[in-house]
């Protein structure tokens, strides 16, 4: 059926825009960190494909080579990666990401460090640039010194690093948390106490492992890596659901979303915005525009004039935990 006719029949054009910690997104899709976020040219392309916001690949103070290849592999139910935070360091990042107004959507900076002071320093160097917000991934499962391997995923470390980052900028700060923690709400609460403006839920799951039978060898260069994509989706949804219950902060729901229906599930679990990453493998950067088109069609079907009215809708059902 013709979509235009649909809208006329429905008598309204669904409003997909959302406000995320005061940042207006034309639609809720966000390019997740670590996918295609290496250059401004790629961010521009993803924004032109329809993303509501884009996130750069994480930047540290000094350049990092990351782990040996293979670093990212597709398996039958998702991606597994141990890239190891390769990045050119904050100095080059400041050159690469200057003039961000060329990008047709808000740009979020993912910032990493081995301790609170490093986060502060990287954020300080990036402050003159046009980033709309900072994201702190305190939850990478496969890089020594960082994320969960650096002890950053505990409530105490989350509080400490978030506080430090909060003091370094007036822009919104998002804290990205791990799906591994059974009490994920406690981490979200610590981030909130530290001054976070939003929670990004979730980072990759695991680490997991794949083994080459012929050579009896783990396949990833680092041996193990974070799991994303379809395998992560139901876990990510439950995490978003739990975080929504635990804290009154907006959530960027990330994990295995590749269709408008998946994105709508995230919104109903409590997400204000929806991260998309691994789906680029299956559908290319064009996946953003397709998800947005499908969400619009779903809003029409559901009679929802504003997508934001559906945030957390699944919590209104009685009898659920």
């Amino acid at each position: 059926m013709n979509m235009k006719t649909d809208r006329i029949a429905a008598g309204f054009e669904p409003d997909l825009s959302v406000s995320l910690a005061g940042i207006r997104l034309a639609n809720p899709t966000v390019l997740a960190s670590g996918i295609l976020g290496t250059t401004k040219a790629l961010l521009k392309r993803v924004a032109e494909c329809g993303a509501g916001a884009v996130t750069i690949k994480s930047i540290s103070l000094a350049p990092r080579d990351g782990h040996a290849n293979p670093t990212i592999l597709a398996f039958d139910a998702g991606l597994i990666n141990a890239v190891g935070y390769s990045n050119p360091g904050v100095e080059e990042a400041c050159r690469e990401f200057s003039g961000l107004s060329d990008v047709a959507a808000p740009v979020f900076a993912s910032v990493i460090g081995t301790h609170a002071g490093e986060f502060v320093e990287v954020i300080g160097r990036m402050e003159p640039l046009g980033f709309a917000a900072y994201e702190l991934p305190l939850s990478c499962p496969h890089t020594p010194g960082y994320g969960t391997m650096g002890g950053q995923g505990t409530p105490q470390a989350t509080l400490e690093i978030t506080k430090a980052a909060r003091s370094a900028t007036k822009k919104p700060v998002f804290v990205k948390i791990s799906p591994n923690m059974p009490a994920i709400g406690e981490i979200a609460a610590a981030a909130r106490e530290g001054g976070a403006d939003a929670i990004t839920a979730v980072n990759s799951l695991g680490p997991g492992m794949l083994i080459d039978v012929e050579t009896r060898t783990p396949v990833l260069g680092f041996g193990m890596g974070g799991v994303t994509g379809p395998a992560l989706r139901p876990i990510a949804l439950r995490c978003v659901y739990d975080v929504f219950k635990a804290v009154d902060l907006p959530i960027i729901g990330v994990g295995g979303v590749s269709t408008g229906r998946h994105a709508m599930e995230m919104v109903m679990a409590g997400a204000t915005a929806v991260g998309v990453g691994s789906a680029v493998h299956a559908f290319g950067p064009e996946v953003f525009g397709r998800i947005v088109g499908q969400m619009r069609a779903l809003c029409l079907k559901l009679g929802a004039e504003r997508l934001s009215d559906l945030i957390g809708a699944a919590h209104k059902q009685q009898g659920l935990p």
Partner: peptide, 15 residues
């Protein structure tokens, strides 16, 4: 190259 299938952004030449 890293992933080889278009997700990691490592090999990009401009966009």
């Amino acid at each position: 190259m890293k992933c080889g299938f278009g997700v990691c952004g490592q090999c990009c030449c401009d966009g």
